[in-house]
Computed example of a mutant assay.
Amino acid sequence: MILTEKLEQIKAIFTEMEQALIAYSGGVDSTLVAKIAYEVLGSRALAITAVSPSLLPEELEDAKIQAATIGIPHQIVQTHEMDNPNYTSNPVNRCYFCKSELHDTLKPLALELGYPFVVDGVNADDLHDYRPGIQAAKERGARSPLAEVGITKAEVRQLSQQLGLPWWDKPAQPCLSSRFPYGEEITVAKLQRVGRAEIYLRKLGWHNLRVRSEGDTARIELLPEQIKEFVLTTNLPSVVSAFQDFGFIYVTLDLEGYRSGKLNQVLNQQPLSANS
């Protein structure tokens, strides 16, 4: 099926819904969903961004700017997954408890405001990765139009570019809790430490990156083709000093580089369902 046909199918889904609340993180997927929903429904579409310590402040600002550019009504809500020990203990299904909190917050809000549907930005590729949060969303009745019509991540970017969205190539930015190995307790202080480290590197000009945290060690992941340039052009002692100011003791560079899904490679010995 060609992309224009998939776009028309998503529009038809929103037409049938008549009103929809969008779980809107500001990432490229949910922003595309918000754009299409607003084109079809106008003010009968509402974008909601959930804020918690696991969201970078700069991501919230991006979400506000993008929503204003699209024109869609936009609201902020607080979620409290950090109050749940099932989340903060960081089990392999941590995302299940995150999305449970999100949709347990959004669903009653949607009903209170008169929106019969909560819609998220899950795409077709997400269904083939280990994403326990998808199951939590499904259990609470959320809809995923991109996945329903088979739109992949690459097609999300292609369609976003065709629709004139300037952030079509925005790097993926999962929540900060994904920077920690499964089993290491997540705290607000640790999240803030990682967030400050990533913002610091972005201000130096490095954007598609992760700072992984394990105990007192920070591991910087850059795109593989950028590693040599980083070593040759960056004031490494200054980076170490900054990271130590943030609370790390040791600072390392991952020689493999950034690779999406690296957190889940420890699960390869225990095959898991994509949605459980």
Rank of each mutant, 00 (worst) to 15 (best):
L60E: 09
A110L: 08
T4H: 15
H128A: 13
K11Q: 09
M17T: 02
K138V: 10
I227Y: 00
V33W: 07
G183W: 15
V77M: 06
P132A: 10
Y258I: 13
A47S: 06
L176W: 05
G133C: 05
I2N: 15
R259V: 15
I13P: 01
D125C: 09
V266R: 02
T233H: 05
T15N: 12
D126M: 12
M1W: 15
A34L: 08
Q192W: 00
L41E: 10
K11I: 01
L201Y: 00
R196G: 03
E225D: 12
D216N: 13
L232W: 04
A67T: 12
K153M: 04
K228M: 05
I70C: 13
A154T: 07
N268L: 15
I70W: 10
G27S: 09
Q9D: 11
G257F: 06
L232Q: 07
Q162F: 10
I76P: 05
Q161C: 08
S52Q: 11
Y115A: 01
A189M: 05
E81D: 03
Q9G: 02
Q244Y: 09
E214Y: 02
A45E: 03
S160D: 03
A12H: 14
L46C: 01
E18A: 07
A12N: 14
Y38I: 02
K153F: 06
E256H: 10
S177D: 01
K138Y: 15
S160M: 02
L191T: 14
L255W: 07
I199H: 04
S238D: 13
G257T: 14
V266A: 08
K35C: 14
S89C: 08
R94L: 06
E214A: 07
A189V: 08
L21E: 01
G42H: 07
L32F: 12
V40Y: 08
G205A: 12
L223D: 09
N264I: 05
D83V: 01
V149K: 09
E148N: 03
S100R: 11
A142Q: 05
